[in-house]
Design a protein around this nucleic acid. Sequence first.
DNA 1: GAGTGGTCTAGACCACGGT
DNA 2: CCGTGGTCTAGACCACTCC
Lengths: 239, 239
Amino acid sequence: MQKPLYQQVIFNLEQQIKKMEANAKLPSERQLLAKYGVSRNTIRIALQNLEERGLIYRLHGKGTFVSSIYLNRPNIGGIYSFSEEAKKAGKKATTKNCSLELVQPSERIAKQLNLEPCQQAYRLIRLRLVDNQPRIYSKTYLPEKLFPNLHLSDLENKTLYGVLREKYGQLSVLAFEDVQAVSLNEAESSFLDEKVGSPSLKIYRKTIDDKNLPIEFTVSLARGDKFIYRSKQYNDLTK
Amino acid sequence: MQKPLYQQVIFNLEQQIKKMEANAKLPSERQLLAKYGVSRNTIRIALQNLEERGLIYRLHGKGTFVSSIYLNRPNIGGIYSFSEEAKKAGKKATTKNCSLELVQPSERIAKQLNLEPCQQAYRLIRLRLVDNQPRIYSKTYLPEKLFPNLHLSDLENKTLYGVLREKYGQLSVLAFEDVQAVSLNEAESSFLDEKVGSPSLKIYRKTIDDKNLPIEFTVSLARGDKFIYRSKQYNDLTK
DNA sequence: GAGTGGTCTAGACCACGGT
DNA sequence: CCGTGGTCTAGACCACTCC
């Protein structure tokens, strides 16, 4: 199956952009559609995607320009876009599903998932790699009552969210993420192939569904030197 | 001058959606284009806007539905929830404006702010404290051409964004924040009253206005043991 | 006036979900 | 099978910026 044209354009433009100077001018939309042999609409969909993600900015009557914030970064993107971002950077992102077990979660985890004291949860341990180097080590807790009969084999070549949606009809809408700076202890440093004491990001994520009920809680640890957490903040103009 | 058609559609649909039940189905795109007498492209631009803002979600082959969490994305995440969060915890948050100087920014900063080599910027150094303990040390760069005659006295008992809006009519719309884990060097550790080598969060923030032009760039350093960066992530239901 | 991005049309075919 | 959203085309005119 062929990827959509606009994604190919995004992929190609993104690589061009990375080689360019900040605030450099991109070819005009008409030049791009001639170059790629697609319609202007397709070009604009691609540019809009790049704009949303902060790689470019557009000025009416002037042109399209390279945004400065993405340059010179070891890795980019929040934790969700992890694999996509890596792919677009021409690197190979893989996810290793290390284990999936039914466990009795700690009180803290149980609270996050609205679990009664006796209820169990699946604990999924994953390692994300870029070009076979470990980047993120994560533990995900999923309430058993929501996802009965979950197996490691379900996750092969699929995203976790894809499985939750397709096998269980569960849609996640919103996630809260807390990010903290920590020093790696000995166990953690071995998972990430880093030195003990290295700074790293600890990311706590709680995902809720469309009824505001928690469906997942994840604690991730990401190498400080190779991972940057990125977010967009929409300002409230009334304040 | 008439507003664009897609904005009228957004406005109208938004009012309908607010009257609807959560997870209710909206008319299909073909029905909507007949109703509004516009092309499907225009309908899709409107729906995409509503989707981005979390009012609706779309499912391939099924339809478009009302999201149960109607959120207009206030800036509750990120570094700027700092003082509010502290207040809720019953603590006293203060901001100390240490200095405001007109400087020749480094090449890196100038790029972020789209400045020509000769153009200057104000550098505002601030320290955020909770119960008189330092938490965040930040350097904010503001283009002089946008904010002439800025003085430290302008900032007394006012937020920076309040001053930019009231004195200069400058509205910020969107900010990108990159968060990285680092170890404190000697100078940094003295500002934050912490040990050298302690893990801390380095936060790069770039704020842009409604024309996608940068109006502010800030580099902040926050104590890893006392500060948590919080953000909301809206999931893409199609993935 | 020439070139840019912004908006818009009226079609088309594809991929997916359910009957 | 049909209806849904997803992708795509080949045009058009408008609004803005700069010369």
